[in-house]
Amino acid sequence: MTRRAYDDGRTAAYNYAYLDEQTKRMIRRALLKAVAVPGYQVPFGSREMPLARGWGTGGIQITAAIIGPADTLKVIDQGADDTTNAVSIRRFFERTAAARTTEATAAATIIQTRHRIPEQPLAAGQILVYQVPLPEPLRRLEPREAETRKMHAWAEYGLMHVRLYENIARFGEVTTTYDYPVAVNGRYVMAPSPIPKFDNPKMDMCPALQLFGAGREKRIYAVPPHTRVVSLDFEDHPFRIQSWTEPCGLCGATDTYLDEVVTDDRGGRMFVCSDSHHCETRRAEGHHGPMLAAAASIHLVEKEDAA
């Protein structure tokens, strides 16, 4: 790795991409093992980072270990590129790794994410890095770590279905809407981090490499490109993703994950794409949603978008 423009006089005290090379090597070794055993949680020596655990330190450490001068980084938080957390993480890598950053999904080589997978299909060569708060899908059902390890080792996953059973028994359907458990490559059951179950199908046979980092829990796992990822379900209660009765209010998309936005204090509300970049791209391409003009009038979007 060449040492270059990151040394702008302000950050010289740090190694490239903040972490020292030994730590990066340790993380890369964990990543290699994770890729070799899809869905298996590999322990790693999670480091202190200059932000609190639970703010994405696992994802940041993975990104720091894999980023290079040729990479372009996109960071999304709640599907958006412009939230505080996304902006801070992007700035962190701009300063410590002199990273090129982008909001365009297709232009990114590394996408660090919390909560979402971009709507635009990912391509071979891209890497999706997830920030994972709770990597153990069995934890809420079995508190003992030694026991959950045995359950993974021997694929004793009946308990996962007990959880789904409980949901259907109580609410008539599986009400788990995010962090919905999946079976990877027909073997390990994996927590896909708090993405909506809407995004689960995007993980299946995805051409991009998917890496998961849990900083506080000190676990790394991975889904290699073109790997089967199946959401758990029952034969008579098959897995279904969320759907909405109305299109995105801004761009009119009917096939995206929508967030509810409150527009005034009189009960007004609208549904808009959670993936802000995708929505903007569609509007730039001339797609219009039914609420676009109204949104522009209250400055939810720039005037020229509404034009």
Binding site: E156, G158, L159, H161, V162, Y165, I168, D233, F234, E235, D236, H237
Partner: peptide
């Protein structure tokens, strides 16, 4: 469910 029954 442990033994693989998957019909709710």
């Amino acid at each position: 469910m442990d033994r693989g029954d998957r019909h709710y």
